Simulated assay, not measured.
Amino acid sequence: MLLLCKDALTSLHLSVNLPCVAKDEILNVESLQFNLAPIRNATDNFSDSNKLGQGGFGVVYKGTLSNGQEIAVKRLSKGSKQGELEFRNEILLMAKLQHRNLVRLLGFCLKGTERLLIYEFVLNSSLDHFLFGIARGLLYLHEDSQLRIIHRDLKASNVLLDEEMNPKISDFGMARLFSLDQTQIDTSKIVGTFRYMAPEYAMHGNFSVKLDVYSFGVLILEIVSGQKNNCSGNGENAEDLISFAWRSWRDGSVSNLIDPSVSSGSRSEIMRCIHIGLLCVQENVADRPTMASVVLMLSSYSLTVPLPSQPAFFLHGSMGPETPLLQDSDSGVTKSSDNVSAGMSVNETSITELHPR
């Protein structure tokens, strides 16, 4: 049985003063456990024809249950210690979160070496221009849910679109709980994707809800420009997307930033999105808006939006924005992974054990 009481929360790095979960809530988490056989049948034994995508922790497959329900199944790579932690973390968090802009976890499976997460199937797997829904999902995590959560890996591939084009934030394996009175945490374990990562977190391990705000800003600029936040050019001429966006804004040449595929839309809306994106990636953490403010700015065009200050530019070194790091604290050797995980200690997350049926 999953005991999500104060001691368990402490072991999860969730240093919050929450009461023990009621018995029916614990049983609800346990009821999410699937048997392996129906998941194998649903995915045609994890056939390549059903493969939807692949990330640092495993492959995602489309499946259809015997009742006709379509599902997406994340199959953890065997022997991935980091993936095991992500797997358990996601179950414990997602079992308690419900929001129309968060992807819904239907269940999980633990059998032998198999570690499976079963989600609702989201039809449209590419990100479009529906920033308001994403902002509402983050606001729910930061302020409106019963838990205060920082996602820590918001990026284009972690936002899915359903058949009605509603955006849903997914992949909570790296998410972190805050207590309600906390504003910032320092950590020696850095996780996430480099090109979406706020500089104070990438360099010093300082993170707060403004980490997700920064990532959201990068996402806005990527959507509007149709470009990834990669460095282009060489030497002193190297420039990442944030630098280019800031220079274009400062010089009054924003039209150079806008992707032709979105240029047919409202010019004022596009300009406002760029404006909000630059506010979110400002170097000074205190200057970045909260997600509540972002939601207001996106929904009310009568609201005056402050001018952005210069963003932090830290992508000009030899490390590219997609460069993944995983530091082995025993050997001091840096290893690669699809997500960034760099620090001076072994991953300190300890999570309540889940047992196979």
Score class of each variant (00 low, 15 high):
L3D: 13
L4D: 15
C5E: 12
C5T: 14
A8E: 10
T10F: 08
S11Q: 12
L14P: 02
S15I: 06
P19R: 00
C20T: 02
E25A: 07
I26Q: 03
I26C: 11
S31H: 11
A37R: 01
I39V: 00
N41F: 08
A42V: 03
T43F: 00
S47A: 01
S49T: 10
G53D: 06
Q54I: 01
G56N: 08
F57T: 00
V59A: 07
Y61G: 11
T64I: 07
N67D: 15
Q69S: 14
I71W: 09
A72N: 08
R75A: 13
G79V: 04
Q82H: 08
E84I: 11
E86I: 07
E86V: 03
E90F: 08
Q98H: 15
R100V: 05
N101E: 14
G107Q: 10
F108R: 05
L110V: 08
L110M: 09
L110S: 01
L110K: 04
T113M: 13
L116K: 12
L117N: 02
F121A: 10
F121S: 07
I134V: 15
L139Y: 12
Y140T: 10
L141Q: 05
L147M: 13
R148Q: 09
I149L: 01
I149T: 07
H151V: 04
K155R: 11
V159G: 06
E164Y: 11
N166C: 03
P167I: 08
A175V: 08
F178V: 10
S179L: 12
D181V: 05
Q182A: 10
I185G: 08
D186F: 15
K189T: 13
R195W: 15
Y196R: 14
P199Q: 15
F207E: 12
D212H: 06
V213G: 03
S215R: 09
I220T: 09
L221E: 00
E222T: 05
N230V: 02
E239T: 04
D240F: 03
D240C: 05
L241M: 01
L241K: 02
I242Y: 00
S243D: 02
F244Y: 05
A245N: 03
D251P: 01
D251Y: 07
L257T: 09
L257P: 13
V262E: 10
G265F: 09
I270M: 01
M271I: 03
I274V: 10
H275E: 07
G277M: 12
C280Q: 02
E283N: 02
N284E: 11
A286D: 10
T290R: 04
S293G: 07
M297E: 09
L298W: 00
L298D: 03
S299M: 07
S300E: 04
S300A: 03
L303W: 02
L303S: 14
P308A: 06
A312W: 05
F314L: 02
G317Q: 11
T323V: 07
P324C: 01
P324D: 01
Q327C: 08
S331N: 14
K335Q: 01
K335V: 00
N339C: 03
V340Q: 00
S341K: 08
S341E: 00
M344G: 04
S345K: 13
S345I: 14
V346P: 08
V346Y: 10
N347A: 06
S350A: 13
S350I: 12
S350D: 06
P356C: 08
R357W: 10
R357N: 03
